[in-house]
Simulated scan of single mutants.
Amino acid sequence: MRRAIGVFVIWAGGMALLATLFFAVSEAYRFWQMPVAESPVPVVVERGETMRDVAASIHAVNPALPEAVIYWTARFRGQSRAIQSGEYEIAAGERLGRLLDRMAAGDVVEYSLTIPEGVTARRFLEIVGSAPHIERTLEDLSPEGVIEALELPVEHLEGWLYPDTYRYSAGTTDRQLIRLAHRKMREALDGAWSARAEGLPVDSPYEALILASVIERETAVPDERGEVAGVFVNRLERGMRLQTDPTVIYGMGDDYDGVLLSRHLREDTPYNTYTRDGLPPTPIALPSKDSLVAATRPEETDALFFVADGTGGHHFSRSLDEHNRAVLRWRAHQRGEAVAR
């Protein structure tokens, strides 16, 4: 009898354990199928947080989802030590398993920052300085301050940052973005220089960078860049001054108010290519990859001059007489007059 009772007790205990286990699995399955959020909700995992901290953050989004279930689910799936820090967006209807998979993969929210082609390095730094979710680590975001803080191997920052659309996660530092932009420009310049045409009147990658920046500022028409580069190459080879307005404007700095007068072309600065021979001393903007290619593989042309044609592009001329006629047409266009070709 005692043996039978003992067997019954063991059996009853086993059944109770099985029932408890079945109930626990059923409840866990119910929680696993439960949407963590009905609509998109952000959740942040800070550096150094434990899985219990993460479970608490998820529980705060959906109090019906117990912290213990979140914690032990991650432990059961081997993800409790794999969760990466960052900002996540819990998708509408997303279940716990999928969320934990994304957290373990570091599928964080990304933001984008667009640096237009042809802006200055100073403007690049202003955009970075005002961008959301970037961690500020640099006290001085001037070009000189950045060179010193990041110990960049350049004397002038102008031209050395790559204009592009950058994607970044919350907590990315200003240093990281600036270093990335500098590295991308180095790579783009090295690639263009290694594939350069023979016999160019530029002697170094830096001179090619300077020329590319001038090309970038001279035309907004991508198909013209090669011909603009060809004109500048022709002038440099003939010892002619570049005589390009964007360099004059750059040299004027804060004195430029949006209007370039003829007297400005006569005022000598290191960047005035009407009064000085050769290239300006530094780049005048951040050139695009296409402008780097144009500077190192210019289009062959007989043209020595170009001027705006009123359609957004330029008229290219081989002689000064032809150029002067094109200038008259451009000025008439500005005045709204009609001039015969």
Rank of each mutant, 00 (worst) to 15 (best):
T282N: 11
V9A: 01
A308K: 13
P132Y: 00
R102H: 14
M252A: 12
A121N: 03
D277C: 05
F232P: 00
I147C: 07
R241M: 02
K289F: 10
A91E: 05
A195E: 15
R217M: 05
A12V: 05
E227P: 01
D277P: 02
W32Y: 04
R341A: 00
G191T: 04
L265V: 07
F316M: 01
L152F: 03
W11I: 13
S169V: 15
S142Q: 10
A24V: 14
E135W: 06
S39C: 04
V7I: 14
G159R: 07
V202Q: 10
E267N: 06
A24K: 01
T120S: 15
R179V: 05
T247N: 07
A92T: 00
G106F: 11
V54G: 13
E139D: 13
S39E: 14
V36E: 12
H133N: 11
R2S: 09
A104W: 06
G278K: 02
L328A: 15
E110A: 13
T296I: 00
S112M: 02
W160D: 02
R196G: 06
A195Y: 02
S26V: 02
T269C: 01
D321A: 15
E224G: 12
Y29M: 13
V339K: 10
D277Y: 13
S213N: 02
D164Q: 10
V45C: 15
L17K: 01
V7Y: 12
W330A: 10
V128G: 02
P143M: 06
E267M: 04
P283S: 03
V109Q: 14
L138Y: 03
D164T: 07
R175L: 04
R95L: 11
Q84I: 07
P116A: 03
E139V: 06
G199L: 11
L320M: 14
P287Y: 07
G278W: 00
F23I: 02
P66N: 03
P40I: 07
L260Q: 09
N324I: 09
T173I: 14
E126G: 05
E299G: 07
R297E: 13
Q243Y: 05
Y271G: 01
L242P: 12
L180R: 14
L161Q: 14
L304N: 02
A295S: 03
E155N: 06
G239L: 00
A295F: 06
L150M: 06
G6I: 05
I83S: 09
Y88D: 15
A74C: 06
G86E: 01
R102E: 11
Q176H: 09
Y88H: 09
V109F: 11
P281F: 11
D255R: 10
W72E: 07
L265G: 09
A326N: 08
V259F: 04
M1L: 13
F306G: 07
D321S: 15
T165V: 10
L96N: 11
D101R: 03
H333W: 09
S291R: 08
D290L: 08
S112E: 12
M185H: 14
P270L: 07
G278C: 00
G118H: 13
E158Y: 04
S262K: 15
F23E: 12
Y206N: 05
D174F: 10
S213V: 03
G48P: 06
E337S: 06
V128E: 01
R52C: 00
R241Y: 06
